[in-house]
Design a protein around this nucleic acid. Structure first.
Length: 237
DNA sequence: GAATACTTGTTACTGTCCAC
DNA sequence: GTGGACAGTAACAAGTATTC
């Protein structure tokens, strides 16, 4: 085995962990950044709780998930942001094939369009909403995309002025690009992306649609995003 | 507060499917 | 034929809610 191939066993183990429909369904569900119980994931994936429990054990052992026991409940979440980006990027690679498969029901079709309109990707905004915010920040010189995503001084000032605290956590970058699987373009992630998403939800700019990752921009959100970033409200509908 | 029923999650076991 | 992976059922444990 060459030095270049030294990581092959680890890559094979990682690929094997993800290469299962039930485990993939769990990982995609956990992309919303929240902690789920095994029972919730079982219902979501359409399999028995025992089956999900076994799969979760493997994902936790493989380092993809972190678990926290609270009483009789066992909550699992994605281990960190890198896992979220790995899953989101893989989903982006198969999006054309997924898009080719027409939804079977009106409800599924509606849910899909809602996800494309706006959703959370782990802990930041994605979909057309995420792209619109990213484009607006870039257009106003608040975000640079030429050598990877980076907030400009004006961008840092904009976050301060908007009352959005950028609290560094560990080695997580302040701003980074995350490939959007519906728009096929990068949107803002990292500390800034997470802070903006948290602020949008806390301030009522966006509300979650049901228990899914899809979010909807409220009239207050349209006014705020239009006033702060000049985003056309029509583009968010 | 104690007893009971219900809910949720885990483990052991088993069957099926598939690749080798 | 054999072994591995996946999924289902049954039994059990533990926590919560309800009733008295």
């Amino acid at each position: 085995m060459t030095e270049k191939d030294a990581g092959a066993p680890g890559l094979a183990r990682l690929a094997a962990l993800i290469a299962d429909e039930t485990r993939a369904a769990c990982l995609l569900a956990l992309l919303d950044g929240r902690a789920w119980t095994a029972g919730e994931l079982a219902r979501h994936a359409g399999v028995a709780a025992s089956t999900v429990s076994e799969h979760l054990g493997k994902l936790v052992a493989g380092g993809l998930l972190a678990e926290e026991r609270q009483g009789r409940h066992r909550y699992v979440r994605l281990a960190d942001e890198r896992v979220a980006h790995l899953v989101e990027d893989l989903a982006a690679q198969v999006a054309p094939e997924a898009a080719a498969r027409r939804p079977h029901t009106l409800r599924a079709s509606g849910a899909g369009s809602a996800m494309a309109r706006g959703r959370t990707c782990y802990d930041h905004l994605a979909g057309r909403l995420g792209i619109a915010v990213t484009d607006a920040l870039t257009g106003r010189g608040l975000l640079r995309q030429d050598t990877g995503f980076a907030l400009t001084d004006a961008g840092l000032g904009w976050f301060r002025a908007a009352g959005i605290a950028l609290t560094p956590t560990g080695r997580r970058p302040l701003a980074r690009a995350c490939l959007d699987w519906t728009e096929r373009r990068p949107h803002l992630a990292g500390v800034a992306g997470a802070a903006l998403c948290r602020h949008a939800l806390d301030s009522g700019w966006c509300v979650r649609i049901g228990s899914e990752r899809a979010v909807k921009v409220t009239p207050a959100g349209e006014a705020a995003l239009s006033g702060l970033l000049g985003i056309d409200p029509v583009a968010l509908r």
